[in-house]
């Protein structure tokens, strides 16, 4: 083989850029796919699947902290669960992305708090990874589904189709420049662009400055990576028809609420096998917001909360 062999070409590919609800973390978590571990039994040959697939399961808990609107303050804690499964068959133009996803935020509020105690979405993943040239790759992904609270009375308003478009310019194996945009008609900013960079600073040090999970990573071993960084999570959900009535504010009936939060922390990813990666991280959540922007009602964090998260990524 008279050419360099570069196989572990892992990149965020721009497609996670500003992705709502961190839908695209699958690619980011896969830092060292297939690399045999030094401390565990060697690399087993992966099972042969005619239809490649990947999944993510994660669970996190955010401790108690206040959110405030004017003089009103409410303390809450949070559980966040996420499950995602995507098939990635190859076609002539690239790789399809066909899957499903479910994510749920569950908040612990006092009874009188005028905020939904559950936000969740269940949606399809319909996308394509392809390339314009050897240096420019792109992803177009639609996430049609229901974005609401309890789904007791599903209406057309609960249905939404966020679209993610991202591109990566492969400047070199060590440097990629990423650009993308999220299109979401329910968002305060229906089109939200962004830029990022992934730069391998040294053989074990990578700056992965790509939203929603900008990080600095250090490869402790081939199987273990330490990282420090942030995670930006955001989503738009529709409250139910009587939510405002029940909370003495009719303007919040069937209203769109944009939930966003920022987490800052450190974590560790451990490759369990060629196919499975376990991650654990902890830190603090300095920012959180419930924004009923159309009703001009906004609750912002008033304090910092601790959080912990564990997640499992599989690729077959």
């Amino acid at each position: 083989m008279r050419f360099p062999v570069r196989l572990r070409f892992i990149l965020a590919a721009g497609l996670s850029l500003l992705a709502p609800l961190a839908l695209l973390r699958a690619g980011l978590d896969d830092k060292n796919p297939g690399v045999p571990t030094t401390d565990s039994p060697g690399p087993a040959i992966p099972a042969h699947f005619d239809l490649p697939s990947e999944f993510d399961v994660s669970e996190s808990y955010v401790g108690s902290a206040d959110v405030r609107r004017d003089s009103r303050s409410h303390s809450l804690d949070e559980e966040n669960s996420e499950v995602r499964f995507v098939l990635t068959p190859r076609i002539s133009t690239g790789y399809l992305r066909l899957g499903v996803e479910w994510e749920r935020y569950s908040f612990g509020f006092p009874e009188n708090a005028p905020l939904p105690n559950t936000l969740q979405n269940i949606n399809l993943v319909l996308g394509l990874d392809a390339k314009f040239s050897d240096s420019i790759l792109f992803r177009l992904e639609a996430q049609p589904g229901l974005y609401g609270t309890f789904f007791n009375h599903i209406t057309s308003g609960d249905f939404n189709v966020p679209i993610v478009l991202g591109g990566t310019y492969l400047y070199s194996p060590d440097l990629q420049i990423i650009a993308g945009a999220v299109v979401d008609v329910n968002s305060k900013y229906p089109v939200f662009p962004g830029l990022g960079v992934r730069w391998k600073l040294a053989s074990k040090l990578v700056l992965d400055a790509v939203l929603p999970t900008p990080r600095l990573e250090y490869e402790l071993t081939k199987a273990t990576t330490l990282y420090a960084g942030a995670e930006l999570k955001e989503g738009n959900f529709r409250t139910d028809r009587h939510f405002g009535d029940n909370h003495r504010d009719p303007s919040l009936n069937h209203a769109v609420v944009t939930f966003s939060e920022v987490r800052v922390g450190v974590g560790l990813t451990q490759r369990l096998s060629n196919s499975l990666t376990l991650s654990a991280e902890g830190g603090c959540q300095p920012y959180r917001e419930f924004d009923f922007y159309r009703a001009d009602a906004r609750y912002r964090s008033d304090g910092v909360a601790p959080y912990g998260q564990i997640s499992l990524h599989g690729a077959f």
Binding site: M1, F3, P4, V5, R6, L7, R8, F9, I10, L11, A13, L15, A26, G27, D30, P33, G34, V35, P36, P43, I45, P46, P52, S53, E54, V86, T88, R90, G94, Y95, R97, D129, A130, K131, D134, S135, L137, R139, T168, L170, P173, N274, S275, A315, F316
Partner: peptide, 26 residues
């Protein structure tokens, strides 16, 4: 050029495209 590597098996979509692109460039 054909290559067989365990690390390729867990790459998907964009990652695999990037590996192909890197190989083509090289």
């Amino acid at each position: 050029d054909m290559i067989s590597a365990a690390s390729l098996a867990t790459l998907h979509g964009m990652e695999k495209l990037a590996s192909e692109s890197a190989m083509m460039k090289d």
